[in-house]
């Protein structure tokens, strides 16, 4: 069960900033502590930056999610970019196609409690992550 999704279109670097701020605010108002809110914000930063750098266009949606008694924050990053050829490789530490640190995706997985990725070359990528309180 989910409610009140906020959707941020990612087209420019300022949209990355907006997505991070929105996620941190949403986490804080749900009652996540400072550290875990920062972890969520950092994960959103990685996801939004990936959209900006690799796909140019896409969106981040942020919503409260509930599972039984548990409450958490669910973030979906969807783009219609080039997609990822080899998901296993992309999820390995220190693998990068752009001379970055290559820890964005595996790091995001470590920052969050749940991580799902689906990608089709030429069609786009969808990543869904959640963190539970």
């Amino acid at each position: 069960m989910t409610s009140e999704a906020q959707r941020i279109e990612i087209e420019a670097e300022r949209d990355v900033r907006l997505a991070v701020r929105t996620a941190v605010d949403a986490a804080r108002s749900l009652g996540f502590d400072r550290t875990r809110s920062l972890m969520i914000g950092t994960a959103v930063s990685e996801l939004a930056r990936n959209i900006h750098v690799h796909a140019c266009q896409g969106y981040i949606s942020i919503e409260t999610s509930r599972r039984g008694e548990a409450i958490g924050l669910r973030i979906v990053a969807q783009d219609d970019g080039p997609g990822i050829e080899d998901l296993d490789l992309a999820l390995q530490d220190h693998y990068s196609t752009r001379r970055s640190l290559g820890i964005g995706l595996p790091g995001t997985k470590r920052l969050m409690d749940e991580f799902d990725i689906s990608s089709e070359p030429g069609k786009g990528t969808c990543i869904s992550v959640s963190k539970w309180k």
């Binding site: 701020r21 941190v24 914000g41 950092t42 930063s45 970055s100 640190l101 964005g104």
Partner: peptide, 8 residues
């Protein structure tokens, strides 16, 4: 605000 992999 945040230190993600790009900032690092």
């Amino acid at each position: 605000a945040t230190v993600d992999s790009a900032v690092a």
